[in-house]
Structure formats: structure tokens, C-alpha cells
Design a protein around this nucleic acid. Sequence first.
DNA 1: TTTTTTTGGTACTATATAGTACCAAAACAG
DNA 2: CTGTTTTGGTACTATATAGTACCAAAAAAA
Lengths: 243, 243
Amino acid sequence: MVLFGTLRIRQRNHKRKGEIMPQEKRMDGTAGQRTRGAAPKTRRLSAAERHATLLQAAKELSIEQGVTALSLDAVIKRAGGSRRSIYTEFGGKDGLQSALMAEISAEILPALAEGTAQEDDLRATLKRFACNLLSTLTSARGIILSRIVLQGVFSSPEQARNFLEQGPGKGARLLAKWLEAARARGEIEARDCLAAANSFIGMVRGNLYLERVLQLRPPPGEEEIESYVDTVVDVFLNGLRPR
Amino acid sequence: MVLFGTLRIRQRNHKRKGEIMPQEKRMDGTAGQRTRGAAPKTRRLSAAERHATLLQAAKELSIEQGVTALSLDAVIKRAGGSRRSIYTEFGGKDGLQSALMAEISAEILPALAEGTAQEDDLRATLKRFACNLLSTLTSARGIILSRIVLQGVFSSPEQARNFLEQGPGKGARLLAKWLEAARARGEIEARDCLAAANSFIGMVRGNLYLERVLQLRPPPGEEEIESYVDTVVDVFLNGLRPR
DNA sequence: TTTTTTTGGTACTATATAGTACCAAAACAG
DNA sequence: CTGTTTTGGTACTATATAGTACCAAAAAAA
């Protein structure tokens, strides 16, 4: 029955190409007879609840189908509520995506550049840093964020720059400082500590990150990460040791 | 004659999704008055030429605006010819994208796993391999291919697997063989040569590849690549040297 | 040249989906 | 309880774009 109605409508919408804007546009009036606005049965949500629910639904859908496939209809269908709530809460699709990205960034980026140096143990410092980096990057959230950034390169290059700057870039600078301190103590030998830091981060990402972004494997377990990081740190530190 | 038959068939296969098929569909008739099929003025192209031209246009547009934004209208507009040629040549958008991907893969993937070992000089071998890998990966084509793969993860995971397998994966296996040989000669010390190879490749990719995929910088010059690779190889080989 | 086949160009259909309008019911204020 | 505001649900518009139909002109065949 309902289906019948929607089919009718669909057959009627020609007149594309932004044509002259027909007079008969009938922006309402006479609408009394129609059976619109049927039956709200669920409890009303608060603004904050709606906001969170919508974001959550968007996040899940992004994980499941990719960010490019994210449609407002799907978000509404999962989150409940009406299309309008997206517009009141986020201003539209762009706003929703920005909010999604901001939220995930806030969760992820700090973790990518996090770490405290243990003055007396560079190896332990590197290991902790690398484990944290790798597990964050390859986590489900890290992967969504990566994909959002990757797929949005053309529409918002600033976001891409920001991601790299605030994430791996910041991490590399932090790491470089530690390396410089170690060099000053004579523990390692290196020409360009920032370059070395970037290499290290690249080495840590290795294949795992690529495989994760390409959806070819589940997130690694803690042991897997630790074992891989052990090897990497060994090679790296051995490579930098004074001769 | 026969050919005619097949064309007809292709033109006729609509009615997807088994939809309701409205009565007034007016599958022609009365078309005599319309001024369709206006004035073809350009020379006709051969099938091979059309094929190549379309692919080239698709490639350029993918570079400029990203693969997800690729539209058939845009391709036709750039390549000339008619929409139909896409369907006769490639069968549709999916076919075009597959062809595009196949073409770029054929150009790129072999280069990612290319290299010849110089028995007597592991360092030089690694350097050549790394330079080649890095310049290929960060080239315009390498980046398009990466993006196609990245953006198509959900629609065609096999392509993603294939990319990783035939590209970096194959390269890592090749590299691992060289490392094993060097280990047998006592030049290096390593537990797991394949893991070491993967680390090395990750190190080579480093930040450059990420920056390129994110469209944050132009392709690196030869000197930049060589200088970076020098550092990486130094650290790596030093890290593996016997104690 | 005349006939047949192929193809460029265009019109058109079908569909997906972003965004808007609006009713009626729920929540809320008094 | 009564009137006002908010919001869920739906109808509807606008637009982009994949895919189809088909004419007429160009190329090829006869």
C-alpha cells in the first residue's frame, strides 16, 4: 500500500536541469488531506543523545561499508529519528562527516604522538612508543580515520595535511628529540635524527598498516605487536649504534 | 550480420531489478520529429584507438579528481565519442574501472618487485631495489593505483589482496631471498629474513609514500630518493651486521 | 553508386540520494 | 487542562549519473 504511493511519486519527478522553477510548485497549502507525519511511537531523545547516536551510527556504517558509501538515509535508519535531526545537529552531510572526523581524530591523533621518555632506557622508550603507535594505527578507529582522510583527499586536503601533521609528524618530532638526547649521551650515532625517526615510524607501520587499511586482516593482537616491535627496535637500534 | 545480432542484444538488456515497468514508457514511436543524432564531424576512430583514448581519459581524470569522482560523462567529454562506445568497449563503468586498474597494475606491479642481485654487493643491490621501489610507488601512476585500490576495498577486496601480493609482497619475497643468501655468506645476521625484508620496505616507504598518497607533495626527485635511500640502507645494514 | 554496417551525438529512462516542507504527535510550559 | 514548542515520520524536490534508445551521418561493403 505504502509502496504504491512511493512508486507513483518516483515516476513523476522529471524536470531536471534546474529549469525555470515552475510556478505550480505548490509549496504546501491544501496539504490537509494527505496522510503525512504518521505515528511517532518511540521516546524522544535529548539533543545530546541524538547527537551521539547519529555519530555512532555514522561511525559504524563507515567501518562496515566505507566512508564514501555513507548515506544519510542509512544513518537515519540505523540511528532512528528523522532526517531533519541530522540537519539540526550537523547542518547536513558535510557537517556530519566533519563531526565524525573530528571525533575520531580527537581519539586517535594524540595517541599517535604519545609517549614519555625514560632517560636511562632508549630501547624501552622506543618499544613503548612503537607498540602504542602500531596498535593505535591498526585499530578499527585508526583505520576508519585513515580511510576518511584517504578518501577525502580531493575534497579537503587540509584534513589530510592535518592528519599527517598532528599524527605521524608530531610523533616523529617527539621521537627525534629522544634520539637527539641519546646521541648527545653517545648511545647512538646518527646524522639526521628526524629522518631516522621517520624511518623508524615507517618501519613500525611496515606491512601491517597497509594490510589493515586494505581490509586484508583483523587487528593484530598484543603479542603480535610486541613481537614485531621487538624485532624492529633491535634492527633500528643496532643500526644506529656507534662503531 | 552476426555482429549486428550481438549488438542488438546488448542494447536490449535493460529491465534490471525487475521493476514495475510503467506502461507509458513510449519505447520510441513518434520520434521522427525530434532533432536527434545531429552532426558527427570528426573522423571515426578505430576500436583500438577508442579503447586507448577512453582509458587515457579515465586515467587522467582519476589523477585529477580521484577515482571515486570518475563519471562516464566526464570520460566521454574528454575522450570524445559517445557514451555507447564505453559500453561496447568496456561493458559499462565497472568494466572501465577494471580495465583501468588492470592497465595501471600491469605498469606498476612488476616494477615493485623488480631487481637483480649483485652477489658481491648487498648494499648496492638494496640501494637499487629501494630506489626503484620508492620512485615507482611515489610516481603519479603508483599513486593512482594505490588510490584505486584503497577506494575500492569494499567493492573488490580481491583487487586489494592482489595488489599487496603482486606488489610489495612479491618484492619482499625477492628481497628476503637476497638477505638469506647474504646470511649464508655470513654478511648479515638475522632471524627472520622475510620479516626483515618487510621492515626494510616499510622503512623505504616511510613518510614519503603517505605524503604522496595524501597529495601533500609532488613526486620526489632522483636525488632526494637516492639520499633518503642511502640513509635507510645504512641504518638497515648496520642493524643487521654481525656483532 | 547504392546498400549495409558502424558509430557519433543526443534524448531519454531509471535510480540514488542530498536537502526541504510540513503534519501530527509528543513533550513541555503555564 | 490548554496552548506552545519540539521532533519523529513522511512526502516531496532537485540533481547527478549509470545505462538505454535511436537518428543520421560516416565508413565500409557490394
